[in-house]
Simulated assay, not measured.
Amino acid sequence: MNSFKPISVGILAVVVSTFSVADDNTYNLIQVGSGNMASGDQGDLTVSNSLISQIQIGDNNRAMGEQKLFTESSEIIQLQVGSGNTATSNQSEAISSTAIVKQLGDSNNGTIEQTRVLDSYASINNVGGSDMVIFQVNSADAFADTVGIGTSNGVLFQRDGIGNAYTSVQTGSDNNFLSMQMGGAESNIVLLQFGNSLNASLSQTSSFASFSFVSQVNNNNIFVGTQEGLGNVSVGIQNGTSLEGEIEQLGSFNDGYVQQFGGLNVAEMAQGGDFNTGEILQFSGLLNEVIVLQLDAFNTAVAAQSGASNLTRLSQGTSGNLATSAQFGDNNTVLGLQ
């Protein structure tokens, strides 16, 4: 094994790069100070059983790790402590490989890009408030996760993937999350958000048999689930007040579910394709509102509310649709338009 381990203590750091036949290589870096940059590049014809490890302590530092051409059973691990730091990892043609970014501090940015990957893993953990971005393109059986504590933003982009899985946890206020699955099949997204003023958007475009789940706890939160493929499932659960949940179904044979617990909430469902199924349940609240819009044919929608002074609006634009409404409580209203 070739091993290069530069270590710097202080403002100036020593950065060592290695260019070797990429088998069982290790690149270790430690930088202490601010305004530093580290670049680890393992870019031979093949990268096998190799490691890039970068640790930076300080502010406004930048770390880049790259394993390209053909990467097998290799790792990129980046740890940053401080504020205003940036970490970027790139793996291409990766098989059974891992990329991990861990950041502690404010206003940091972590990005992982995996292209043409099989059975690989990407993970970003952030404490303090930062941007987290993961790209997985042309991937199969890949897994990714993000954990954000504080004011943080999370973005996932998956394109042309099969059998992928992604989980994200965000704790704090004013957090945003965006996920996009495009042209994939049998992929799963699970998002858990805890806090106030949260915003989540989960999109499945030209996807088949994929699943998305979002759970939001506390107040003033919003989520939107969009399905444009075939046979997808989208589920949203919200617990709190002044919530808004929306599911848009533009494909066929999709299933969408929204559950809200609390008052002053709004749930909307629009079905623009055929043979879609949607269900909205609002429990134990006041002044809640359900809006169901069925634009095409042979869709099924169910809306149920318990509490008082709630409103349900049902609108059907074509033929063969079925809408069912149930209300439990006092001073509730249902408006139906066919």
Rank of each mutant, 00 (worst) to 15 (best):
L104F: 14
G35N: 04
N310S: 09
S97K: 09
D255W: 08
D141N: 08
A185M: 12
T18R: 00
G272Y: 05
V214C: 08
G128F: 13
V235C: 01
V334E: 09
F223A: 11
L281N: 00
F253T: 10
G148M: 07
S20Q: 04
I95W: 10
F261E: 01
Q204L: 14
N254G: 04
E279M: 10
S252N: 13
Q170K: 04
G40K: 05
A87C: 01
Y27L: 13
Q80P: 11
V101C: 05
Q271K: 11
S73C: 04
V290Q: 12
L295F: 05
N125W: 03
F211T: 11
Q78H: 12
F135T: 12
S107A: 10
L202T: 13
L250W: 15
S168K: 12
N25S: 00
G128D: 11
G128Y: 14
N153C: 02
S50Y: 07
T324F: 13
S215A: 05
I76Q: 05
D145L: 15
N265T: 02
I162H: 06
I134S: 09
A144V: 11
T71V: 08
I52Q: 03
G273L: 07
V266I: 14
N125T: 08
E66N: 12
T171H: 06
A165C: 05
G150S: 10
M180K: 14
Q338R: 07
G329E: 07
T46E: 09
T277S: 13
V155F: 09
E228V: 04
S179W: 06
S152K: 06
G229W: 01
Q54T: 15
N126R: 03
G35L: 10
T241R: 12
D41F: 15
M269C: 13
N175H: 04
A38M: 12
E289S: 06
T205E: 03
V117S: 15
S152F: 14
Q271A: 10
V217F: 14
L293H: 00
F208Y: 12
I162R: 03
D44V: 04
L322P: 02
V137T: 15
T171C: 01
Q271L: 11
D41A: 07
G236F: 11
N2W: 05
E66W: 13
F4P: 10
I162G: 02
S139Q: 02
T333I: 10
L191V: 03
A122I: 10
Q294H: 06
F223Y: 15
L230M: 01
D59C: 03
N310M: 09
G245V: 01
V81R: 07
A303H: 01
S319L: 04
E186H: 09
N188E: 15
G278F: 02
S73P: 08
G82Y: 14
V266L: 15
T300F: 06
A200Q: 08
L69S: 11
E244V: 08
L264Q: 15
G278N: 01
M37I: 02
V16G: 09
Q42A: 07
